[in-house]
């Protein structure tokens, strides 16, 4: 499901937003701070449980998750969906988050956005890892292809 092109996309300076299937009244919104794919069927996403407690709660009961990753440089965007579970962050996850934060800060620095502003979007403590069993991947780059399917689980 996660094609080589999408996997390469995860390694770039991409802003990550997510929404969980929730029992709350309103759809949730959160930000990720690093993503990887160890195999084509799974997406792993690091985020701050301190900043996004509702999403953490939803994931702890195994909800579905939508994750959108948009590249700073050119707005190339994909949305990945699937059922997800929650795990504690390990050292590799913390290292991934550090690398991600450095990459995003550098990306925004080029266009003159102050570091303290960027911190608002990618800061946060109590890191956790969402593991998404990918069922659908969509193009979401602004333009006529937005919303078209890239891959779907068989």
């Amino acid at each position: 499901m996660i094609t080589p092109e999408v996997a390469a996309h995860l390694d770039g300076a991409v802003m990550i937003i997510m929404s969980s299937e929730t029992e709350g009244d309103w759809p949730t919104i959160g930000r990720g701070i690093g993503a990887r794919s160890r195999d084509p069927g799974h997406l792993e996403l690091i985020f701050s449980s301190h900043c996004f407690p509702q999403i953490t709660q939803d994931l702890s009961r195994g909800c579905r998750l939508a994750v959108t990753l948009s590249r700073l440089q050119d707005y190339v965007t994909y949305q990945i969906k699937g059922r997800a579970t929650l795990a504690d962050a390990d050292d590799d996850d913390v290292a991934l988050a550090d690398l991600y934060r450095a990459r995003i800060r550098a990306g925004f620095e080029v266009i003159g956005v102050p570091t303290q502003m960027v911190h608002e979007w990618i800061g946060g403590t109590d890191l956790v890892r969402a593991i998404v069993e990918v069922s659908e991947v969509y193009h979401q780059t602004p333009g006529p292809r937005a919303g078209t399917i890239v891959a779907r689980a068989s």
Partner: peptide, 18 residues
């Protein structure tokens, strides 16, 4: 900005807005 919605079956959708 960002917008999040839900399908009738509860599947979330999230995207950027111009």
């Amino acid at each position: 900005s960002v917008v999040a919605t839900r399908a009738a079956d509860g599947m979330p959708n999230i995207s950027y807005l111009s």
